[in-house]
Design a protein around this nucleic acid. Sequence first.
DNA 1: GGAAACTATATAAGTCTCTTATATAAGTTG
DNA 2: CAACTTATATAAGAGACTTATATAGTTTCC
Lengths: 148, 148
Amino acid sequence: MSSQAHELSIAQLTAVMEDFTRMSIRLPAVHRLSFTTLSVLHTLSSGGPKRLSELTAGEQVTQPAITQIVRNLERYGLVRRQPDPSDGRAVLVHITAAGAAVVDGRRAERMAHLAELAERLTRAERDAIAAALPALARLVELNERRID
Amino acid sequence: MSSQAHELSIAQLTAVMEDFTRMSIRLPAVHRLSFTTLSVLHTLSSGGPKRLSELTAGEQVTQPAITQIVRNLERYGLVRRQPDPSDGRAVLVHITAAGAAVVDGRRAERMAHLAELAERLTRAERDAIAAALPALARLVELNERRID
DNA sequence: GGAAACTATATAAGTCTCTTATATAAGTTG
DNA sequence: CAACTTATATAAGAGACTTATATAGTTTCC
């Protein structure tokens, strides 16, 4: 408790996090998929195949909702279900190439948007952000470890 | 086009933005309000009273949805509607003390969460983030100017 | 100055995305 | 082997949004 983040303003970091969230959410969606649906795709894209129960644990929705969402994604050809060989009850959900394309498409939009904004920052500002990225990524990593 | 952000990796910044969004969304909600509803409250809290049409412009939903959301918030006592003196058609929506308390409550949760994570960063990591916050805030500001 | 066009919001009905409740099947534990 | 737990599916219902449309006020144009 003596290792106090006295230079880092948590209030400012929180504000930036909130603003980043709103920036992210407000980019217009190309595909008419719900936020949870896109989040599931993103999770599969970055974390590899997962069980329905694992997907449920990572989203703020109920288990039947995840079942429905994955059924929908399967219908659109964005994911593929496969029985889990280690558990007769379970299903492993894999993202398909089409699903990965959806995730990549959105990321490309965000990257283009951020690149445009970043160009209007000063060199010093860009350097400061670049220097902080590994630490910000660590923050996220700590958060993920906390959840899992 | 020669002022290239060669030290700032847009891919990494995008990834952090996406992860921040997911961190933010995944904090369990105390109030059972939709994401859009909370976003409207947040907008009123930080930007002051706004017209329904202004709120519509800032969210990814239709005008009737905003009308319904604001009606709901009014019923909960979280906002207050007031005719716009400069336009007989328009309504100005003000956040109430109860509404501000909802926004502040969520922010406090996020701050507590981030503070806990930040404590587990090294001093150098916290310093790097602190140094980057003004630049990140500028990025957000540039984005807001782009929308308005 | 009045008609046409535009803007702001409200309402109704419908759709989609989620919820709760519950069922079934498979795995684990004692 | 029975009881309990876990994994997922299904059905019905509710909430949050949509589209369609209406009404009222403002602005523009002739």
